[in-house]
Nucleic acid binder design. Structure first.
Lengths: 339, 339
DNA sequence: TTGTAAGCGTTATCAT
DNA sequence: ATGATAACGCTTACAA
């Protein structure tokens, strides 16, 4: 049991709590001698400040909250790693919650974090999230908030993303340059901004290259955008549109589902149908064929988001004005075997 | 800003803080009438108790800490999900830290959690961890501790694992039953108990089936037990022991590395060499060929570990004696295409 | 250089 | 049924 308190040290040394506190915190108005005795005894008794008391006194928890849609997810796992790394540097701890792509959970979890009085909050929105009152609640509590990856453009806070539209545009342009002409798109659901932007990039690339946009070549995945979606839609499209020569998938997991199906029915990739993913999950590099994809720097997104959040926390502490940033991190095309 | 305090409510209502507190906490010795007024005003002012003060007063944080070796990891991600689910049920929050398979970090993070005064700690040990003083520190702080997956048998606390030895034994027996005779094993490093147990299971299965154990067929992966390890060791063994007809890998990631190499040099799986993994990562079901593996129930391990931890936290609160449990969850063989 | 005392926002004990 | 008061352990203005 380690429950040494300042009081105990003080009484053992026959001095006041204040002097003990000051000594331990390196204040200058304590004699070297007493300071030393205090520090020695503290060390000997294994003193650590009671964080509950410190929190109450300083009104900060040295903790931030993180809400992500799904944990079992290559991209988000990497984001978390980046966040944890930045937090550790600053002696901050991170409470992690999973919204499970549900708006309802997201709301509830925000309340939990606010009640816990975390010093800041990091969120990647659920695919369901189309209203933003709960985010504004965070702001009205004066708690720094940084949105990343799946953001709400309308909420007034810092944001860290990639340029989904441009990334998709480049991806499809690349496909066109490789000679593919009938390019289908398996897009995400209608809500998260990313799906929309990736779709828009796809469409624009076609148009800029004089390929007429054909909405019947766009298949919509449901909210999960998972393996099954890719598999099932691949089955459908092969039947409905045998003429396609490439599919641009909204995310790797969907692309992997596509590959799975094409492999099963022995449609050659990329000779008959090319497949291009998005996100560069580790998995995509060990598939057969290896999946070409867009690299989305999860780790850096995490680091940057956290670092902005901590900056804002500090600015707030000093009553300095904070200027919200919108950062876009770069992406790149990873060419492998599927295109 | 939501900083309503009991004091404010009290003064607005012209009653004492005590009465306000009691009303809000449903004590019986408050008149229905005042209780109602208090509750109404509290709701109107959006009162939420200051958790810092509550923590200080009650000496509990309603928070647990979790230390895992790696975050970008299918199995551990599933474990975390299980833990978060149990925590949420009980209105507990979870602080997550990553040891990165380093003993040094593990130690430091334990200190962080202890200083934070979390109500309990959940750990899966790093592959480096061969001494346990830091774990005993947790116990000496009287903080409930549950070890899962990678545990230390010698530490006196509850543990949740699978039976690695039996799982490996069954796995190799299955291989033998399928007719494989020269079975190699890519084992993990010498430290984590799992590696040892899986190796022991492998060895025992051979012996029980009258296949002489040949130590030259056992290749040791380094601490990371990753894709590269599988790939490189596969390259080596194909060269050094062309006679083998199966490889039992300590974990799926290693198995996937093996498959990758065998595919590249066009060694037929499983006709020439069969590959059996361990853990049943999602990835393994979308490989070509699909990987046969041992299902390790990550989600359940997480749930069970958390639930035991919360039980111990409650018992401790009631000053009831706690009896440490060692739970072993079942595994099963997932037969796919690689064996 | 050292110490007193107030206060952070609760909860709990004991009077009234 | 209600309230005064102390306490949790710390920080910090203000005295001495």
């Amino acid at each position: 049991m380690n429950n040494t308190t300042l009081k105990q040290i003080a009484s053992q040394l026959g001095i006041s709590i204040t002097t003990v506190s000051k000594s331990l915190k390196g204040y200058s108005d304590v004699s070297e001698k007493t300071k030393k005795t205090v520090i020695d005894l503290a060390k000997q008794l294994n003193y650590t400040p009671n964080s509950f008391a410190v929190n109450l006194r300083t009104k900060e928890s040295k903790t931030i909250g993180l809400i992500i849609p799904t944990l079992v997810h290559d991209f988000f796992s990497n984001v978390i790693q980046g966040i944890l790394e930045e937090a550790e540097k600053r002696d901050y701890l991170v409470i992690i919650l999973q919204s499970n792509e549900k708006l309802e959970f997201e709301k509830k979890q925000i309340d939990l974090l606010l009640n816990k009085r975390v010093d800041g909050i990091l969120i990647s929105l659920s695919n369901e999230t189309g209203e933003f009152e709960h985010l504004k609640t965070i702001l009205s509590h004066n708690t720094p908030l940084v949105l990343f990856d799946k953001i709400a453009k309308l909420v007034n806070c810092s944001k860290v993303t990639i340029n989904d539209r441009k990334a998709a545009y480049d991806a499809v342009s690349y496909l066109i340059k490789k000679g593919y002409k009938k390019i289908a798109h398996f897009r995400g659901a209608y809500l998260p901004q990313n799906s929309i932007d990736r779709f828009l990039g796809y469409k624009k690339a076609l148009e800029d290259n004089n390929i007429p946009y054909d909405s019947s070549l766009v298949y919509v995945c449901d909210n999960n955008m998972d393996f099954e979606n890719g598999y099932e839609n691949a089955k459908k499209i092969v039947n409905e549109h045998p003429e396609i020569d490439a599919i641009f998938a909204v995310t790797d997991l969907v692309a992997i589902g596509i590959i799975k199906y094409l492999n099963e029915v022995e449609i050659a990739i990329p000779q008959q149908i090319a497949v291009l993913g998005f996100s560069n999950w580790f998995m995509s590099s060990v598939m057969s064929p290896k999946l070409s994809t867009i690299d989305q720097p999860g780790f850096e997104i995490g680091k940057k988001s956290a670092s902005i959040l901590f900056d804002e926390i500090n600015l707030k502490k000093n009553n300095s004005p904070v200027i919200f940033q919108s950062i876009e991190l770069g992406t790149s095309i990873i060419e492998r075997q599927s295109t």
